[in-house]
Design a protein around this nucleic acid. Structure first.
Lengths: 347, 347
DNA sequence: TCGTAACAATGAAACGATTCAAAGCGGAAG
DNA sequence: CTTCCGCTTTGAATCGTTTCATTGTTACGA
């Protein structure tokens, strides 16, 4: 298996100059079909494969884009990356994927790696605050687009989702069903996403006649945390239960559902309407299929690549912050809900 | 932002030869500390970043390993890749990740891409049969280790998990609890994993006194498919229900659990002991925490890198096929199970 | 027959890091 | 004073591709 064949070997084998081989690969119309054929035959016979290192050394930049996400296991990011890959492929670029796992060191490691690879640009869902790092990168010609994080438009382009709007959407849906005694499950509020979703829900409740919103701190976003909240809820007398519950994510909602419907017999959606957030795969498969808020992950990925292209094209790039509004997905956990007789639904 | 600084710029700025700068980076002990200091200062001031393309062009190979998996969203692969990354990092190699999404074209695309990048080797969980492709790759000096697929040791190294053993383990566990009327849920049997797991279960049942195994074709491995099987089961009279159910994966098991415990009142594990396969995150969070079979993903990833290193080192490499045995994880869905009074547990 | 336009093919130079034989430099020994 | 040794430093050559100015070829009209 000696050494990989180079363009020079191909040239010798096909009895042409190296430049001609290169042209066959990059500017096929400049080459007569007779020669082209001979060259392609030689390529095939020698099993020649382009050496991308040499190509990009000459070109001065690669045809790759670096993407660093917080957690590849999270379907939100998986789907986002998939969309980014597809969008990048249209421009003939490939994606290098890095998983920071919420770890600053890993994140930094990938940024270094990608910079050594001379990626055209970076898509980054940052772990912490790395403004300085990004400034230095841009200085050296590596533009970065922040993903899933709203950024100051004067400094960066970013693509994010409006969690406040999502919270509003969820609460408003419950209110539209005639529910008035709402509860929000989530926490701690130090997590921005959670706080924003709660904020949006509060806004919706303020707008509605005689509606209340109770905050139930779950201190974690897992199924178990949700079940814990559910269990403490059912200790109340029936009359004091909320008639609509909005959970900061689907895992919490599934936990609440388990607790209410299986371990106690509160009916969903009849007694309590329930809605989650994220629309994970399991939402459809729950005993009572779960209503949820879906984030437009494909659009986010596509847009991120778009913004990156803009930064690459423009000489003096202006940054843009694109904010997406999430979408309501109605399923049985709220859909079958009849409004409690006493209250009139909001028009 | 003109042009990225090169080693030559650093050399000028620090008043030394390019070779010296290179030595500072790669053989620091050959350089006097005075010069080293000057060079490092220059690197810092110019914001110099190594151009990996040039480095690997000279070296003839990169320091990366390509990994192509069937589905990055699948926790099995996520965890495997993470382990492979860590193992590769020990040798100073980085991992390029590609997601074929069970698509032959995507798979092929990534293999091409990685070969152009001159990866040292490939870890591949193949979509179909690509023996020829791999032979050609090896011819050109790119060794490949197959992952999650047993391969002929004469031709490839591979790391896989013994699904037959896993099936045996699950069924044996149910039998050890005293259950005798077992059912296997899964299908279609054209999926090798499913067939193997069923095969292992059959073997265990054959060994046990008076035990029977019924095959219930779910025709799919989803929660809904599992619920479907559950629903058809409960139409039987109570006496005809199996007392132990083994599902080909956890999703099916969760579906069966939903159907039996929530929609009808079969008690788990008292009436029916239930065990799944894969040990997904949700297994712990089920209403009745689900027993399952766990695959040693970290070990698989680590071993795959090890085998690849062996292939890289050896002149005339002998291939190895490493097969891991999965592990039983006992939770409440089988643990609390009392053996039916009539039957004596197998010793 | 000659000139010239159109088209093909050529091959040297450039990209940036690494390598390595050779040169430079002090200091110690003879 | 010369020689030699060990330690630093030097800089040309190299990797494989692309680019582009140059050369070669063909065909056609004058």
């Amino acid at each position: 298996m000696s050494r990989a064949a180079s363009i020079k070997d191909v040239a010798n084998h096909a009895q042409v100059a190296v430049g001609t081989v290169s042209n066959v690969l990059n500017n096929p119309d400049r080459v007569s079909s007779r020669t082209k054929e001979r060259v392609l035959k030689a390529i095939d016979e020698l099993g020649f494969v382009r050496n991308d290192a040499a190509r990009q050394l000459r070109a001065g930049h690669s045809r790759t884009i670096g993407v660093v996400v917080l957690d590849v296991g999270n379907p939100f990011f998986t789907s986002l990356v998939r969309a980014a890959e597809d969008a990048a492929a249209v421009n003939g670029s490939a994606v290098l994927l890095g998983d920071s796992g919420h770890d600053v060191a890993r994140e930094s490691h990938y940024i270094d790696l990608f910079e050594e690879q001379r990626v055209q640009g970076l898509l980054l869902s940052p772990v912490g605050d790395i403004g300085d790092r990004l400034d230095a990168l841009r200085q050296r010609g590596v533009p970065t687009v922040l993903v899933d994080r709203l950024a100051d438009e004067d400094r960066y382009s970013s693509v994010s989702v409006d969690d406040d709007a999502g919270g509003y959407l969820a609460a408003r849906h419950l209110l539209d069903l005639g529910r008035r005694k709402l509860a929000f499950v989530g926490g701690p509020l130090s997590i921005r996403q959670v706080a924003d979703r709660l904020g949006g829900a509060r806004r919706a409740v303020t707008e509605a006649d005689g509606a209340t919103l109770e905050f139930l701190d779950s201190n974690g976003q897992t199924v178990l945390a949700g079940r814990g909240v559910g269990n403490s809820l059912v200790e109340r007398s029936r009359g004091e239960l909320p008639d609509g519950i909005f959970c900061a994510n689907d895992l919490l909602a599934l936990g609440v559902m388990q607790s209410l419907t299986m371990m106690h017999d509160v009916r969903i959606p009849d007694d309590v309407a329930l809605i989650g957030y994220d629309d994970i795969d399991f939402a459809v498969s729950a005993v009572v299929p779960l209503s949820s808020i879906r984030q437009p992950t494909e659009a986010i990925g596509r847009t991120a690549i778009e913004l990156l292209s803009e930064e690459l094209d423009a000489q003096h790039p202006r940054h843009r912050a694109v904010v997406f509004t999430p979408e309501l997905v109605v399923r049985q956990s709220t859909a079958g809900a009849a409004a409690p007789a006493v209250l009139t639904p909001v028009p």
